[in-house]
């Protein structure tokens, strides 16, 4: 915990890199200069978008895959192994991997889309900030799906089977069973998972560093990456610490909002039954 407190002190101070000591305290100076910087605000907004995108996409896809793996079919074990495998991929390797997939000259994505006639010429995917950000999100989602699937599977297996049978006997169709039984039961499982995923996405670094280094034009810089740049490239430790705390604050706010939603949903559900 000491490091975190030290960073808190730093966020209110100016730090001298040569003498390794705190020069003077500047109050909220670091924070206000950050908030006055439009690029910082854009970065913060981008970070939240990125985190929510990754969390929602991973939860949705993870849930669907878990539903599939919960059904018995031949070859399920094999599919399961390959679904879990990306979990073992070091983030830096995931960066290199997706960098190669989306490579402008030799990437498979270009080759496939071109063959299918979906694009007229090879695209430079990482050259455009918006596309590049989504490529990074894709890498993060791909890597995070296994974790989600495992937890959703555990959640699905703990469901009382009789409820579904009873509903089927009562004549509820697949969609009704999904909407009125599965969804309410799974929301309490899904929200903590999405929270964890969101927090992890906020911490994404390796994939950004390898794929784009925050570029082009800072368009794929998230807060965590911004902290790295401020601290270890500009050696502006005070401002970096302040940004790290803004990141923490944003994370906390989103976590609290999501927990509130969870409480609302479960209360609503209890009220209905």
């Amino acid at each position: 915990m000491y490091p975190a407190l030290f960073t808190l002190a730093l966020s209110f101070a100016e730090f001298n890199m040569v003498r390794l000591s705190i020069e003077r305290f500047v109050g909220f100076g670091n924070f206000s200069s950050l908030l006055a910087n439009p690029q910082f605000v854009a970065t913060a907004v981008r970070t939240i978008y990125f985190g929510l995108l990754v969390a929602f996409a991973t939860a949705t896809l993870g849930f669907l895959i878990a539903l599939l793996l919960n059904e018995p079919f031949r070859g399920r074990g094999l599919v399961r192994v390959f679904v879990v495998l990306p979990w073992a991929v070091p983030p830096v390797v995931a960066g290199v991997l997706w960098g190669q997939m989306f490579h402008a000259d030799v990437g498979f994505i270009n080759a496939i889309l071109y063959r299918l006639g979906l694009i007229d010429s090879y695209r430079i995917w990482l050259g455009d900030a918006t596309t590049a950000l989504h490529v990074i999100a894709l890498a993060e989602i791909w890597k995070a799906i296994p974790f989600m699937v495992l937890f959703f599977l555990a959640g699905l297996q703990s469901l009382p089977g009789q409820v579904f049978e009873a509903a089927e006997v009562d004549g509820a169709n697949v969609f009704q069973r999904f909407r009125y039984i599965l969804m309410p039961l799974m929301v309490p499982v899904a929200i903590p998972l999405m929270l964890i995923q969101f927090v992890w996405a906020m911490k994404a670094f390796d994939t950004i560093f390898v794929l784009t280094r925050g570029g082009p034009g800072g368009g794929t810089t998230t807060l965590n990456y911004f902290v790295y740049q401020e601290a270890f490239q500009s050696f502006n430790l005070g401002r970096a610490s302040a940004s790290a705390y803004v990141l923490l604050l944003i994370t906390l706010v989103v976590v609290i909002v999501m927990l509130a939603i969870r409480r609302l949903v479960s209360r609503h559900w209890e009220g209905a039954s």
């Binding site: 975190a4 030290f6 960073t7 390794l20 927090v199 911490k203 705390y245 923490l248 994370t251």
Partner: peptide
């Protein structure tokens, strides 16, 4: 520790290690 940004810890660690 797992929910806080890694950079939060790395900055002071860096200072300490240099020291």
């Amino acid at each position: 520790v797992y929910f806080l940004p890694t950079t939060l810890f790395l900055i002071p660690m860096f200072v300490i290690f240099v020291e």
